[in-house]
């Protein structure tokens, strides 16, 4: 198992899109390699931060307009 495997699959791992066997291989390597662990942690934290910062809430007036329209 090499670091190259982790680097070419890092995004799929973070997205939760790796198959079970690959995910296990990936995680096994992370247990052994601090450098890859740090890469994956950083990318994963950045992804979470993107989600936290970019989530929006629809304005109340839009919600009201839609409810009225839906019932019409």
């Amino acid at each position: 198992m090499s670091c190259a495997f982790v680097h070419s699959n890092i995004h799929d791992f973070i997205s939760g899109e790796l198959g079970e066997e690959d995910r296990r291989r990936f995680e096994n390597h992370l247990h052994e390699c601090a450098s890859c662990r740090s890469c994956v942690n950083n990318m994963s934290m950045l992804r979470n931060r993107l989600g936290d910062l970019l989530r929006s809430r629809a304005p109340g007036h839009l919600r009201d307009r839609l409810v009225v329209r839906g019932k019409a």
Partner: peptide, 12 residues
């Protein structure tokens, strides 16, 4: 209607 926030975010 449950998905209005996500739709608005994507529209933005």
């Amino acid at each position: 209607m449950e998905f209005i926030d996500g739709l608005y975010g994507y529209a933005l």
